[in-house]
Design a protein around this nucleic acid. Sequence first.
DNA 1: TATTGTTATACTCTATAACTATA
DNA 2: TATAGTTATAGAGTATAACAATA
Lengths: 147, 147
Amino acid sequence: MASVKAEESVTDTISFLLAKLGQLANGRFADRLAPLGLRPRHCAVLELLTGPPKAQLELATTIGVTPSVVVDMLDELEQVDAIRRVRDRADRRRQLIELTPAGHELRQRAVALAREADDSLLDGLDAAQTAALRAGLQRIADSTLGR
Amino acid sequence: MASVKAEESVTDTISFLLAKLGQLANGRFADRLAPLGLRPRHCAVLELLTGPPKAQLELATTIGVTPSVVVDMLDELEQVDAIRRVRDRADRRRQLIELTPAGHELRQRAVALAREADDSLLDGLDAAQTAALRAGLQRIADSTLGR
DNA sequence: TATTGTTATACTCTATAACTATA
DNA sequence: TATAGTTATAGAGTATAACAATA
């Protein structure tokens, strides 16, 4: 009779590993981004703004953070000239956020740095293992974050 | 000519996914642990203490946190009667930390909760995908955290 | 002098609630 | 009245530095 392999320790659990490695990955990526004046959380904003301009509340709900966090992030992105806030003339309460040319450039540099971080993190894995890992993570992300 | 598939966006990067999902996994596990008076970070301590008693500094270096964090965690674990601090008679500066019977029980309940968290997180993955994900994460953990 | 554990302090990240200006 | 954005504030979580007791 086949029996499902169960972990005997919390630390072997995927939830625990994910939490620990997530912290590590975030820290390493943050170190690489620091010279650009960016932090990991800014990247989700930069990605979203490659499309048409978006209101701040729209950014907040899409990324899944509270509106006041968006204010802070945009303040910081504005300081490095990555974004512009443009008052919506149809509804003067809203501000449409758009990426500047410098912002597009920053985003591309961030992508390159993220790849570097991946390479260092995935050093011991071959292509198939990396692909399987990415697929698993993406699937979890789709079923949780996207919902 | 084969070319390596490269991500076009930071958010598709394994580093970024890991950071985001790690935060999610940690939060969900924390919610489950809360009724026990525990948080995820306590679990690494409980696991280590299933073996022979250890000094606080040993816990700190093994887990990879700063000594003052260990003090806090042990204070909290002491409040739920999970551990005992026993002064080392050979070197009175040291305190040997040992798991109480209640601590052993708490650890086992934490393992069960972590498995529940895994099940909910891995809902959309089949056994092979789950195994591949675990293997990838474990390999990264071994090459980074263990170093 | 060096080491173990502790305390005090500060910094990051995030969330809540009160406020403003517009609708 | 309700909504978009802002500010002020507070709570986790972690790290650094100064300190007491012991070696």
